[in-house]
Amino acid sequence: MKISNETKVGIITVLALALLFIGYNFLKGNDVFTNENEYYTDYDNVDGLTVSKPVVVNGYQIGRVSKLTLLDNGKIRTNFKIKKDYNIPSNTVATIVSADLLGSKAIVFELGNSKTMAKDGAPLLSDVQANLLEKVEPLQKKIENLVVKLDSVLSAVNSALDTEFQRDFKSSLRSISVSLKNMEKITTDVEGLMGTEKIRLARILQNLESITQNFKNNNEKINSILANLNNLSSDLSSTEIKATIDNANKAMQDVLAITDKINKGEGSVGLLLHDDKLYNNLNSATYEFDQLIKDVKERPGRYIRLSIFGKKDTK
């Protein structure tokens, strides 16, 4: 059977119209071949949101924005078409979020915890996430103010940094550099000294460890000694220390009085120390007595006579 050209043109026209209809509905967010539920909510501002923008849950697309309508109260009613495969709780919040840095928007469903599911055509709660640029703008203003203040501070500092100050500052930096070099040299010397004295330090540490161990092993003895010292201190504090001190002071005063008399030449000791004649006589007497003892030892017959059997003049 031969098809006429007119029939072919008609068929092509119908197919073109069908494709045009399907494409138009797809661009509007309507899926001709899929059954969908429709929900809506009202926003005060939908800047950047357009028809066919995606509706996502946790990053997964479940529908599209199907319609935007300006209401009499100035709000914008936004309709969503969601696939019937997904149940939407009645307390779900539809939030407008920024999809990219260019200002494009999307709808994010924050699923609620209600066990009652929203019916087809039911309203949802709405929310709008702050735009990234809106968040950055206050920070940008603060940064601009900070830059202005910093510029004024730097200008003031620059005016204060005259030639003399710069010269002194360079001199200070040079002194600091020299000090750091000296410190580095000292550190090197100390490291060398530590290297040469490493064995001695190890021995010292061993000795300290041994002493510490001995203290630990003799802890009970040390505690006993401290207790004895504490008891001795208590005993001493309970004795008549004041009376002892008074007696010591009185004895010291007596000694001072005796010393004063000796210094004044009173008494035998004082005369002996201050009278040269008495000293010389005593010295002469001592010398003569020494000579007498010596003569007695050498010639005892002159001083001692013995009479045996009644004889006389017998030495």
Rank of each mutant, 00 (worst) to 15 (best):
G270E: 00
T163H: 02
K198H: 00
V255A: 10
L70M: 02
L273Y: 08
R64V: 11
K84W: 04
E209G: 12
L271G: 08
F215L: 10
V147W: 06
G103I: 11
A156V: 09
E266S: 07
K170T: 14
A251Y: 01
L125Q: 14
E134M: 14
T92R: 11
E6T: 03
L71A: 05
I11V: 15
L20F: 11
I62V: 15
T116I: 04
Q253A: 13
I258H: 04
K2V: 08
T69C: 01
K170D: 13
S159I: 12
Y279S: 09
N131W: 03
I211Y: 08
L132S: 01
N73A: 04
K198R: 01
V14G: 08
I211H: 04
T7H: 05
S172G: 15
I304Q: 05
Y24Q: 08
S52N: 14
G63Y: 07
I241D: 00
Y60N: 03
P300Q: 06
L208M: 07
L102A: 06
A118R: 02
L232S: 11
E137N: 07
T286F: 01
F169P: 07
E220A: 14
S171I: 10
N280E: 07
S4T: 12
L201R: 15
F309K: 14
D275N: 15
V56E: 14
G301Q: 12
D276K: 13
G270V: 10
N230K: 15
E36Y: 11
V128G: 02
G48F: 03
Y39C: 01
E144G: 14
K115W: 02
F289E: 00
I308Y: 14
A122F: 06
R174N: 14
L273V: 15
G23I: 03
